[in-house]
Write a protein that binds this DNA or RNA. Structure first.
Lengths: 104, 104
DNA sequence: GACTCACATAAGTCTATGCTTATGTATTGG
DNA sequence: CCAATACATAAGCATAGACTTATGTGAGTC
């Protein structure tokens, strides 16, 4: 698991959508396919990428594999972003100001 | 500029390194090449990707082009991450606990 | 005005990646 | 125990992406 892997994993729109679905709650690979027009191997490969990036965790239960969000990946991402914190408070303030102005 | 573009832009190690150098301070394309073993067009293309992702901003000055971190991109990333905030406070607490244990 | 410098853009190549179909491997139900 | 289910893995293909060399463009220099 590294930052590169995390960014690469999230660079794919399908994987980002899968991750978002997992954020709603634990699901197995078959449930995750619902709504997507993807072959079963494609989903399996996407999950492998997310897993090796530390973004999701798996738990085998019989012949099902339950996937859930792994906070480790998000923590890594959060830590990376935090290095550049100096750049966004200013921006946040600007947004706050903008919202204040829009309210009037 | 979209989340996909941002993640894609940051998925490349070279672009992440370029971004990190820009975080240290505004630089032009030639200065950015120092230390990298990249052709000039390669750097130019990387900067184009970072620019279209909203991660850096350019400012032309004579025949030089000065690049700097654009907070907009980081703000987008921060906003994306914030959607999953529910997952990381728990993790942060775990890390704090771990650090506390390591101190002893 | 020719020349150089600091870039951007074009075109071509090679590798990475996302997809497919085909197959392998546990697990479970009849 | 045999078929079906729920996956993972393999192999092949087609597109995307990162790089190169070559060329274009506009701004400073002499």
């Amino acid at each position: 698991m590294s930052e590169v892997d995390i960014f690469k994993a999230l660079a794919d729109p399908t994987r980002r959508a899968v991750f978002e679905r997992l954020a709603d709650g634990e699901k197995n690979a078959t449930e995750l396919r619902e709504g997507f027009s993807l072959s079963q191997p494609a989903m399996s490969q996407h999950l492998a990428v997310l897993r090796s990036a530390g973004l999701v965790a798996e738990q085998k239960s019989g012949r099902h594999v339950h996937y859930r969000v792994n906070p480790d990946g998000l923590a890594q991402l959060h830590q990376w972003l935090h290095r550049y914190r100096a750049f966004w408070p200013q921006r946040v303030d600007e947004l706050k100001q903008l919202l204040k102005e829009m309210d009037q």
